[in-house]
Structure formats: C-alpha cells, structure tokens
Design a binder for these strands. Structure first.
Lengths: 123, 123
DNA sequence: GGCGTTGTCAACCTGTTGGTTGAGGAAGGT
DNA sequence: ACCTTCCTCAACCAACAGGTTGACAACGCC
C-alpha cells in the first residue's frame, strides 16, 4: 500500500501533462459532452480521444453517466483540490523559507553595519 | 508557436507526475540540497536522481547555482503559480456551472410544487 | 601533478504513452 | 429485423520515460 493519494496524484498530474487532455478538461468545465462531440475539433481519430477520456476517467477527473449510447462526460473537480493542496503546501513552505532567509540576510547586513568589527569569541 | 505556457504546463505537470520528483520538490521546499544529498535516501543510482533533477530543471521548477562541484539545487516556486492558476480557473468554472445547474433544478422543482398545475401561457 | 569527490554524459534496456487502423458491441429509429 | 449512430476493444507501432552501468569531466586538496 503506497499511500493511496500518491497514486491519485500520479495519475492526476500525468493526465494534465497532455495538452489535448487539458483542452478536454477546459471544454468540460463549460459543459458536459459526449466523446463524439469532444473529438470533433481535433485532427485525431475518435478512438484516440476515447483513450484520452479514459485516462481522465482513471485519474478521477471525469465521470460518465451510465446512460449508455449517449454517455456524456462530466468533469469532477474534486481531484483538483488534491493537486492544488499539494502544490500550495510546498509553494508556501518554499516562500516561507525564502522569507526567513531574507530576514537572516537582512540581520547579517545589520551586523556588518558597524565599522568597528567585533572580534570577541561568543563562546 | 504553440503558446509558450502550453509547453511549460506540459513539462510542469509531467514533472510532478512522478512520485520521486514530487518527493524531491517536497524536500527542496525545506532546504536547498546537492544532487548527492538528494540521492542518498533513495534506492536508486545517483545518475537516476541526476536525471530527475534535470527534468525538474527543464520544467522550470528548480534552478542550480552555477557554483560548480557543489552546485546546490534550489526550488523555484514560480511555475507553481502557473499550474494552480490553470487548475483553479477550470475548477471554478465547473463549480460555477454546477451551482447554476443546481439553481435551475431548484427552480424546476418549484414549478412542480403547486398541486394545482398552472396551465396559463405566460406570454 | 595526481587524487578523491561530485556530478554529468552516453549507451542500453524495458515498460508506457499516444497515436493509428480494423472490427465489433449496444441502443434507438423505422 | 435491420440499419445507423456512438463508442470501445484489440493489435500494432514509434517515441519517450525511467532505470541501469561505465566512462569521464570539473573542481578542491595534498
């Protein structure tokens, strides 16, 4: 058991790494659509688009009504949360650290300010 | 020209699709590190980690001081913004649409509410 | 200059991805 | 019952990704 969210993030990020799939997501954000409708604008076989949709589905980004024949694809935004939370966590950590580094550098600059250098050993 | 940010998003999402690379990012969020330090905890050759770092670098997620020999890897959070903006944009669109759909359904339910069906034409 | 440390480059292997074509399954219309 | 529409499945292919090992480049230290 490799931590379930790890696998979900793997799939989610991989799914969005493809520009065609990002475009599908962008369009599905506006309205549900069938595979046929989704395929129309691309210079690509229907089967290829079907595969892309399958990837999105396995990534949990998209669901399909069991409706059959006309089975519209629907965007499920939940996994997005997982991704943004991951990203934001480390972005904040990095920025926080950067902020602290900045403060440290500022303090060091202050310590250098006095022209008479302090040579005493602090121990 | 395929829109520069498309290519950047391709690389960024692809980079984070790998759990080892996400772990590298997580560690680099806390502190800069050399390739050797980064490689230590993994059951994987140094060369493999070096490749991962290169992928992160080409994705713009990480920079290296030209320092040479001891060339610490440093997390650059800027690309994160691009990703979260992309994700949040479509998540919001989807949620907005969902909200509107909900409202529509609520209205339809209201129209059915009265037991005495109103047959007058509203025109 | 020679040596250890640190990291990259190159070649190679294997599995996966993104596309193709061809065949076929499942529902609805007539 | 049959046709059409919509979609998936299967086989195949080229390209890429993630790992390996081996060679070697760049720098700091004696």
């Amino acid at each position: 058991m490799v931590d379930d969210s790890t696998e979900r993030l793997n799939r989610a990020f991989a799914a969005l790494a493809d520009p065609t799939r990002r475009d599908l997501v962008a369009r599905l954000a506006r309205e549900d659509a069938t595979v046929g409708e989704l395929a129309e604008p691309y210079d690509m076989s229907l089967q290829a688009v079907s595969k892309h949709v399958k990837v999105l589905e396995e990534a949990g980004l998209v669901t399909r009504s069991k409706d059959a024949q006309r089975r519209p694809v629907h965007l499920d935004a939940e996994v997005f949360d997982l991704m943004t939370k991951w990203i934001e966590r480390y972005r904040r950590e990095a920025e926080e650290r950067y902020r602290r580094l900045d403060a440290l550098l500022a303090r060091m600059a202050d310590d250098e300010q006095p022209t008479h250098t302090d040579t005493r050993d602090a121990s």
